[in-house]
Design a protein around this nucleic acid. Sequence first.
RNA 1: GGGCGCUUAGCUCAGCUUGGUUAGAGCAUCUGGUUUACACCCAGAGGGUCGGGGGUUCGAAUCCCUCAGCGCCCACCA
Length: 872
Amino acid sequence: MSTSSSPDTSTDAVTDDPAPNRTIGVNMPERPSIDNIEERWIQAWEEQGTYTFDRTKHRDEVYSIDTPPPTVSGSLHVGHVFSYTQTDVMARYQRMSGKEVFYPIGWDDNGLPTERRVQNYYGVRCDPSIPYDPNFVAPESPHHPPIAISRPNFVELCSVLTTKDEAVFERLFRRLGLSVDWRQHYTTIGPRAQRISQRGFLRMLKNGQAYRQEAPTLWDVDFQSSVAQAELEDRETVGAYHRIRFHTKQMPTLVIETTRPELLAACVALVAHPDDPRYQTLFGTQVTTPLFEVEIPVLAHPLAEPEKGSGIAMVCTFGDLTDVIWWRELSLETRTIVGRDGRLEHISFGARAFPSIDPSRAQLLYDEIAGKTTKQARARVVDQLRDSGDLVDEPRAITHAVKYYERGERPLEIVSSRQWYVKTLELADDLIRRGREIDWHPPFMRARYESWIEGLNGDWNISRQRFFGVPFPLWYRIGEDGSIDDLHPIFPDEARLPIDPSVEVPEGYDTSQRGMPGGFTADPDVMDTWATSSLTPEIAGNWEDDPDLFERIFPMDLRPQAHEIIRTWLFSSVVRSHSLHQSVPWTNAAISGWILDPDRKKMSKSVGNVVVPTELLETKGTDAVRYWASSARLGVDTIFDDRQMQIGRRLAIKILNASKFILTQLGDEQAQAPRALDPLDESMLGALRSVVTASTLAFSNYEQARALELSEQFFWDFCDNYLELVKNRAYRRDEGAESAKHALGLALSVLLRLFAPFLPFATEEVWSWWLEGSIHRAPWPRTEEFGEVSGDPEILAAVSAVLGEIRKAKTNAKQSMRVSVSRVTITADAKRLGEIGLGRGDLIDAGSIVELELVERAGQDLDVSVELADPD
RNA sequence: GGGCGCUUAGCUCAGCUUGGUUAGAGCAUCUGGUUUACACCCAGAGGGUCGGGGGUUCGAAUCCCUCAGCGCCCACCA
């Protein structure tokens, strides 16, 4: 034998090698590793089109997924890694099960988050009154103070930045091994999304599902835009109760309590409960407000709570949502004083809207607060009340829940404005019924959907007074007198969509007529981001522009998403689908949990506890991270736990090593079906067949964590016991070896495929050592593959138990596992003894047993007595 | 105020739908072993009155009632 170094060491002649020459595993490395294998496979999958959607497949052969388009202006966090992996696991399972998986990817890049990011990133702000500057160059670093730029310039910057952000997201998602079809790609600001959003809106306008109305609207004074009920959140905020005296002749003193004394000038009534004995004499009378001395009615309404404060409330236009209800139901006056910028407007007392007994004094007092913010005005009004003697006691500090826009910093105001709405209130029953057509995973998440619908207090406001969004595709006529005809919008032909009405001109008009008497003006608003996102199935499926595709994927099979956006994304999607298609948008909703940090706080950027996902994937390995994400059940909030990733990492490595070992034993001989299977091999295959059945069932119930657990449990036992028992026999050249090789080959193939959805890289790596094609297009294991195997899992279990006892004896004696055993006596009942007898030869080999005695004793389950060989 | 979820070993979690081995796994801890599949390995050990109380049952982690703690969702919180 040559001692010179040969590059071809693996085929170096080793004449006494019991295994034949093998070509299997020519790509098999000496020391397999899961590190740095990702990029190779990502590239191979892309080149081979492994995940490309085949659109010739019929609807019932397709599994379609309404992938959540992540907000690209947000940061990447482990929550993305977690939930997107859970969806990918299901996608891979469905693909292997024979479904053609429609797995698109979108980026949510329109809307306020992007605007805000652009403002901060470049140091700019949008001023729609400025004309477009074609030579504008964005500053290198954030400019202070922000540069005012035109709307078109601003929108351009939004596009530039989102493109950058999207590239970062794409890198992460590829690295995570998502089996999305990158050709099925959309953005929520792109032309297709705009066209479909606008078409969806026009359809709903025409069928009466959308309407425009002037009404009290939730308003963020910083963003200067309306917001929807779904975007509210309560925040505990410090405030104070102020006891204020109103003037009446009916009672010696009349005191109300309020947290918003600055709205006194906007007061339009007092309200008490109809049964409240204290105020019976007041109902129907007029009382006078302090300071401004405006006469207001005292009215009864059941919403007034006698226990709260003094039991009688000051109704202002508008302090909160209850005021809106009272205002509407009691047909009260409108006296708005808070402007859209959050400051008190200048108003005139004595005018019709603001009558006063003493207009000049009222004006004097009010002029001190006009122009101030509500907070500044509040302090001043309290001083005024104190001076006038109408403040009873000093303000009492409290903490109470106040409504904020979820992205906002100051409490919401309610202003009267004209907005576009989508009808939801009258659909409530239908929407709940639709919700019950969807299979929720986990089922209890449906309760959140229903409780949201039951709590709706108005229709869905879809218009926003912002810039980077989908414009409403409408114009309004301007009368000869310059008045705008809001009631009869001009619609574009749908074939023209998408359009920007501030640039394009309605049919029959020309550019010169824009903004002119007798001409037209564009609707200035953009759509709420959810008005677009609610159409993701339509956008991904290219609704009406590609009806052939759409009918192959809609209604979709799966909507994966997080639970905090049930009231927004999920709800609004059901609304649109119900109205546009009289259908649910999908048949399954898989709701992922949150990632919590070890203190059980939700991981978020503001808490400063976010782990950078790309670093995580690089240091742990993608499969390890995917294992962690896969082992969490849907809907369950999960602690970020790198120990769980370590376990996944070990599993992936073990799969590589065990596979290498098995492939080495298989050799390259054409696998031949053995004449008869050894009972131990058959037993192992019988157990594995049960795993296939149980794992498949778990997947069909959207319990991927269970499927993983089953396969993993089997696999470790398979390595520790079966491989040890069978490896000596497999090396021989007899019938027993044939049986072992057959069983090993089948088991390896099945196991790799069972793990493939979870650990796509490690399993693909092994597959490539052995077989052609991608494992991710290989069929999901079926029980039929096991043929006539009728294996009783008890045999392997019994033999393994004996092997365990022998190991225990060796361990207790602090001996090596390789030390030989001079005598083993097994006492058991006939059935157990029979099972063990079937694995006798393998047991003797694996345990290094010199003498094995089987003793039958009825009623004895299993007793193993072990005599170790003399250490000498 | 209404609703949902959770509470099992030091840690992270299964098990509960359909009640029945001695309540499981991994990690961590401890004790050993091994270096021709794998030290990212192997073997073994210790560790739990299944949140409290009550009930149903021959039998309850599992079913029912109740209480508590934690988390979340919803609500017209002057």
